[in-house]
Design a protein around this nucleic acid. Structure first.
Lengths: 140, 140
DNA sequence: GGTGCAATTGCAACTATTTGCATTAAGGAT
DNA sequence: ATCCTTAATGCAAATAGTTGCAATTGCACC
């Protein structure tokens, strides 16, 4: 079963209604394989369904984010980007000066997630963390 | 010397021009002692200066953020909040379900910052990290 | 297969933030 | 103190994202 069927089925089990619009958004997001904006999803969506609306895209992305199927990232480029967790866990190191985005892994992340869980009972989503700072080039 | 004089002087040294508007924004932000929105800063600012503009506030906050004097946080409440680092380092644990924000400290943060610096040469700003997830109440 | 009700949609209006551009003014040189 | 350069401002228009509401439609129940 594909990743997007899993998402759709789980949403249905949780009491959400599955509309064609939602299926299309999930499909586009799950197959994007990269970070994508709401606008891009809307553009692709319009090729598949006659009448639809940007706010439906935003609302669906909200649901996916609340339910833990998508991550949203403000990479400080003026737009928010979204991805499914399929895209793989990593940290975005976003430079405040040049806006460059460096993808990183951190072995410390798991330890931090565990610490947060044990101390605060908070289930942190560390799949796509954005961390701001100054990149090597800019601090040189 | 107060914190906001330090900021102003450093900005001047770095080649920024110090306008009354900038001084006021820095002063309000440095003395807020909490997270504050651009709109709140603008409201307070209007009590001190006749003619001014919201976009000036946004532009000044951008500079302060780029130069490392302020942090910006999207707490997913529809507005972005700002603070100086004076406010003290901590993590915001933001619940995706109920939007509750829990402030936390993490001993693991320093280790992570060090790891990121040594592996990627990236100077991460971990003073005010926002981490999304599900809070203890909502996961119960 | 038909019915009912509440969730979801499309639309339009609204809020938050950014940007282009003409004007103003900071601050280094004189 | 005045001049000059160019960064910063104010304004208005644009862009990103949200929200209220009437119309539509999924889907649970018969």
């Amino acid at each position: 079963m594909s990743h997007c069927n899993t998402i759709i089925d789980t949403l249905r089990q949780r009491g959400y209604r599955i509309t064609p619009q939602r299926e299309i958004v999930v499909d586009i997001l799950a197959h994007a394989g990269r970070h994508i904006t709401a606008e891009e999803i809307f553009d692709q969506m319009q090729k598949r369904i006659r009448v639809t609306n940007l706010s439906t895209v935003y609302r669906t992305l909200d649901v996916l984010w609340e339910e833990g199927f998508a991550c949203r990232n403000d990479l400080s480029e003026g737009k928010t980007v979204y991805a499914t967790h399929q895209h793989g866990p990593h940290i975005h190191l976003v430079c405040r000066r040049c806006d460059a985005v460096l993808d990183a892994n951190s072995q410390v992340l798991d330890a931090m997630g565990e610490e947060i869980r044990s101390r605060y009972g908070f289930d942190a989503d560390l799949q796509h963390l954005s961390i701001f700072g100054i990149c090597a080039d800019c601090s040189a």
